[in-house]
Design a protein around this nucleic acid. Structure first.
Length: 202
DNA sequence: GTCCAGGGCCTAC
DNA sequence: GTAGGCCATGGA
């Protein structure tokens, strides 16, 4: 067994089944993926709570709501003007192509869906893969700041590898299984946060 | 007061 | 294709 897969099993043994992305719906995952861009998750949670309080955790409501109101609701997540626009763009995309009665559906092939997401203003590779993996349950490995730190810590590959190359690195070393990608990435975050906590203590 | 967090866009070379 | 500036809040 290769080291990448072995590390996954080690983390699973150490932390158990992870529940990293606490979202009540696929749309909430998609919205969270935008809101968390270069931002602490704590600040995102506040924004999500406000959105829910205003009944704005659906694509339809976000498309319909006044931009100023949306901006105010998500202010705590930072970059609120950009993110309000990005939420509207993403919501419109999902509504037009992937939502039936508020539930995500799969029309196109996974790669076509990924290309569609990447074509949206405000959706880069990481945001796209978060949505694909955590909202659509499709096997795309997510590369983020935590993943790169993890790679560096364990000397798995060059930590500054380009996004697509690092994604492929993980995918060729793992069974093509969304459940495994999902859990692995979640465990990487959990392990990374545990590391941070230890640093603060010392 | 400074630094940074679960990125991505735009512009200039 | 890539380096640098920009977007903005809240917590340490």
């Amino acid at each position: 067994m290769n080291r990448v897969f072995q590390l996954y099993k080690d983390l699973l043994e150490k932390y158990g089944q992870p529940q990293w992305w606490p979202a009540e719906s696929p749309f909430e995952v998609a919205a969270g993926a935008i809101l968390t861009q270069n931002t602490n998750w704590k600040n995102v949670e506040k924004a999500i709570t406000k959105l829910k309080g205003l009944g704005l955790m659906t694509a339809e409501s976000i498309v319909a709501v006044d931009t100023k109101i949306l901006e105010t609701a998500i202010r705590s997540s930072g970059y609120f003007r950009q993110k309000a626009e990005r939420l509207k763009i993403l919501s419109r995309f999902l509504m037009d192509k992937y939502l039936e009665d508020g539930v995500l559906t799969e029309g196109l092939s996974p790669n076509q869906l990924r290309a569609g997401l990447l074509a949206l203003k405000g959706v880069g590779p990481e945001t796209a893969d978060c949505i694909l993996l955590y909202a659509f349950d499709l096997p795309f490995f997510v590369i983020d700041a935590y993943t790169r730190r993890f790679v560096k810590k364990h000397s798995l590959c060059a930590p500054d590898l380009k996004y697509e190359k690092m994604r492929k690195f993980f995918e060729i070393n793992l069974p093509k299984d969304a459940r495994i990608y999902n859990q692995y990435h979640a465990l990487i975050i959990i392990d990374g946060k545990a590391e941070q906590a230890r640093t603060y203590d010392s």
